[in-house]
Every structure is written in C-alpha cells, then in structure tokens.
Nucleic acid binder design. Structure first.
Lengths: 165, 165
DNA sequence: TTAAACTTTCAATAATATTTGAAAGTTTAG
DNA sequence: CTAAACTTTCAAATATTATTGAAAGTTTAA
C-alpha cells in the first residue's frame, strides 16, 4: 500500500471510530492527522490537508485542547500558532479515560444517587426501581474507581495487570 | 422524590448517557423503561409511556434485540408480543462490551493491521506512520484481549480483580 | 377462507449536529 | 499609533440522523 493511501485510510477510520463513540468526525480526523505528522501543524496546513474550513479547524482544535490531548506551540520567528499531539498511546488512553470519566460517568453517578431517594418502597414498582438503580449505582461506582486507578497508574503496572488476565 | 419524577429522571439520564456513547436516545430510553418495569411490556405500552411512534418503538426494540439485551416474550392467551430485558447489571455490561468489541474494536484492528503494510519506510513520514499505527495496533490488541476475557469471565472473578486495584 | 389484531417497512418530515465563511477581534512588528 | 497577520466567533447553510405515520405485510382465531 502506498503512503498517501494508507494515511487517508487511517484518518478515515479514526474518524469513523470517533463517530461511534460520540466524538465528532472532524475532531477525530484532525487528531489522527496530528498523530501522524512529524512536526506541529498550523491551522492553515490542517485546512489544506483535511479540506475543512478555518472555523471548523479552529473549533475542533480548541475542543481537542479542551480534552487535553492537543497542545499549542510557537515556532521562533513565526507569528502563526502550531499544534501537536502526544504520540504516546498510553498517555492518550489515560487522558481520554480521565475526561470521559469526569464528563460522563460522574454525572450519571449523581443522578443514580439522587434518584435512589425515591419515596414509598412499599409499592412493588418502587422496590424494583430502588433495586435496579441501586445495582447500577454500585456497579458504576466500581467502574468509576477502576478508571480512576487506571488514569493514575503507570504503564508497567497496567501491563503487569494485563498479564494476569 | 416522588416515584414518577424519579422514573422520568432516570429514563432521561439514561437517554443522555446513551447519546454520549453513540447510542440513540430512543433506544437508551426504551431500555431504561424495560429495566424498571416489573413485567414485560408491549409495543403499545411503550408508545404510550415514552410518547413515541409505533415505528420508532418497533425499530428500536429490534435494535435492542440485535444487541442481545432485549428479549421477545409471549403471554398465554395474548396475540401481542411483549418485551423484557435482563435486570442483571453484570450480564448487561458483558453483553454490551461484547457487541462493541465486535462492532468497533475488531474493525479498527483490521484497518490498523492493513495500513501497517505501507511501502517505503526509508522516508521519515513513513517511518513515523508505521511507528504510530504499530503502537496503536499493539495497544488495541491488548484492550481487545482484555475485553474478550472480561466478557467470558464471571462476576466473582471480576470483583476479585477489582479488589486488587 | 377472511377479517381482525398485530408487526414491519419506508418515504416523508423533523430534529440535531456539523460546517462554512465572512466579519469581528486580537496581537505584533515597525 | 496602524496596518498586516493571524485567530476567534457565530448566524446561516448543509449534512446527518432520528422519528413519524400510514400503508403493506403477517399471523391467528373463528
């Protein structure tokens, strides 16, 4: 396979994967491009390469910075801003886990806890409601704790754990 | 909090959580409703309760059955079909993991592997490309294996593992 | 059979999310 | 200062995805 073909294919696949996991396609593709680039890219270069508008590039770069997976850089003697991402897959996985935990698991935990304080567990429906939401809460708490540990762990520890599987 | 309020809140939250993870809102809400119900529900009842059209209910029930988390049932002396879901959170998590692995992780593994066979690693870009996609492939393979183990494990084993964390 | 009860399909519509591009804003060199 | 170089914003346009509802299809009881 030729380099440009492979590159396009990877960027495309990364975009699709992102979509399936609630991350917009442009954002995922932009990230893929930075992952492959041997040096930081300017907004201009990204626009050119991915054929997307300045506004879109800007918005998605900021979203990626917000997720903590893209950094702004400055080159000496250049006005322009350049952007890069860490090539460390492990660090990337940790950062994404950390953010999703904060943005999505924590809120559902809050709701599950609130909703438990429903009145009238004499009725069958209410008893069932408490049971199900209670179990979901316990399980989510365990997963939450696990992700927390994971995001604070180092690679060696994680790979050792994987061995035990 | 009053039961109906809590119920609505939970269904709503489950829908939002679903959306964030690439699962459509109706599908997630429908699942939430079945989770809470003390007995199987007919399409009619679901339409009524969630205020959605027959077509939508039908489509999403089929999608949930496709995911293996909702089952069709028949009541004696009734023409109608009834639907239910397992209340076992553990079983649910395993089933969802299994399906997402099959639908999303496996395809990206295929692409990562293909794309590795790019020609010309004498050039800097190509070398970087191989390095990054190679590391992603290794990492994804490990995660894939882990999920596979998880979906085949039993609850006790998993909770013991959690302890070690 | 057949007609009532129910389920499925799918083109049209509606809702949501993404993208654009031009104008406004900001920074810096001179 | 000020104008060029660059970044950000955001209303409008476009694209994508979800939902409806009515018609077509299927099953069953009589």
């Amino acid at each position: 396979m030729e380099y440009n073909e492979a590159k396009q294919k990877f960027i495309q696949a990364w975009g699709t994967l992102g979509s399936n996991w609630g991350i917009n396609k442009a954002m995922a593709q932009l990230h893929a491009l930075l992952l492959l680039s041997t040096e930081p890219l300017s907004a201009e270069e990204i626009m050119e390469e991915l054929q997307m508008s300045r506004g879109n590039v800007n918005m998605n770069l900021r979203a990626l910075m917000d997720w903590g997976i893209v950094q702004k850089e400055h080159k000496v003697g250049e006005r322009k801003e350049f952007f890069s991402t860490s090539k460390d897959v492990w660090a990337l996985a940790k950062q994404v886990s950390k953010e999703r935990r904060r943005r999505e698991i924590e809120p559902i935990l809050t709701v599950l806890e609130q909703v438990q304080r429903v009145s009238g567990d004499n009725k069958k429906e209410v008893a069932e409601f408490k049971k199900v939401t209670g179990e979901l809460f316990d399980f989510s708490l365990k997963v939450d704790g696990m992700i927390d540990k994971f995001t604070k762990s180092d690679q060696t520890w994680f790979y050792k754990l994987l061995m035990k599987f």
